[in-house]
Write a protein that binds this DNA or RNA. Structure first.
Lengths: 113, 113
DNA sequence: ACGAACCGTAAGCTACCACTTACCGTTGCT
DNA sequence: AGCAACGGTAAGTGGTAGCTTACGGTTCGT
C-alpha cells in the first residue's frame, strides 16, 4: 500500500474529513477541535493520531497546547494519486472510442468515402 | 454531506481503491474483477454498488455481462474537493506567515507608513 | 425449452472501528 | 510547591463494514 493510498484510506472517515477541513482554514489545538466537533476530546486525539501517522497533519508544541495543521504537500500527493486514476480513465475512454471506430470499419468493410 | 465527500468516503476502502484502479485502465465485468481481486464475486458486487451509489462508476449491460467503468467527471469532483483543502491550507499558511511578520512589527510598534 | 454463464441480493457471521470514561503525564502560572 | 489547563493513552463497549455461502433472476446459445 503506497503512502498516497494510505492517506486516501485515512480520509475515508467523515469525522477526519471535518478535521482536515477545519485545520485547512487555520491551525487548531485538540481542545478547540473537540469544541467544534460533536465528539469528545480523546476521540479527536485518536483521529489526529491516524492523520499524523499517514503524514496528513503536522503538530507543534505551543506552550501547554499542541497545534495541529495540515501538510499541503501530503494533500498534493493524494490529489496526484487521484489524478492518476482520472488520467488513466480518460485515456482508456479515448482508446475505447478509437476501437469502436475501427470496429465500425470492420462491421461495414466498405470504403466510407 | 456533499457528494464529493461521499465519494471520498467511498474511496476509503482499499479494496474499492483497487477496483477503481483496475476499472480506470479498462472497463471490466464483475466476474473479471473477482478473478483479479482476492475476494468473492458477491463481495465485488457489493463494492460496485457502493461506488455506483456515489456516482464514481457507471455500468452498462453487455449481453449477459455487466461492464463497469469509472466516471472521469466524478473523479474530477473528488480531486477538486481535495484541491479546496489544499488551497485553503496554503492560504492559511501564507496568512500565518504574514501575521508573524506583523507581530515582528508589533514587537517594534514603529509606524509602518 | 433446457442448460450454462453471469450477476444481484438476502442472511449471517466476524472483526474492526469509532466512541466514551478513566487515568496519568506535562506545561505554565502564582 | 501547588494548582489548573491541556492532551495522550489504556480499557471497554456498540455498531457496522466487509466477507462468505446460498439462492433467485436474466440473458444467450443449442
Amino acid at each position: 500500500m503506497t503512502n498516497a493510498s494510505a492517506m486516501l484510506t485515512a480520509l475515508g472517515d467523515p469525522t477526519r474529513q471535518s478535521i482536515i477541513d477545519a485545520l485547512s482554514r487555520e491551525p487548531l489545538a485538540v481542545g478547540e477541535l473537540a469544541r467544534v466537533l460533536p465528539i469528545s476530546r480523546p476521540a479527536v486525539s485518536q483521529h489526529l493520531k491516524v492523520l499524523k501517522d499517514v503524514g496528513l497533519v503536522l503538530d507543534r508544541q505551543e506552550g501547554t497546547r499542541r497545534l495541529y495543521r495540515v501538510d499541503p504537500d501530503a494533500l498534493a500527493q493524494v490529489r496526484e494519486h487521484l489524478d492518476g486514476f482520472w488520467a488513466r480513465s480518460l485515456t482508456a475512454f479515448a482508446q475505447r472510442t478509437r476501437s469502436e471506430e475501427e470496429n465500425d470499419d470492420q462491421d461495414d468493410p466498405g470504403d466510407p468515402s
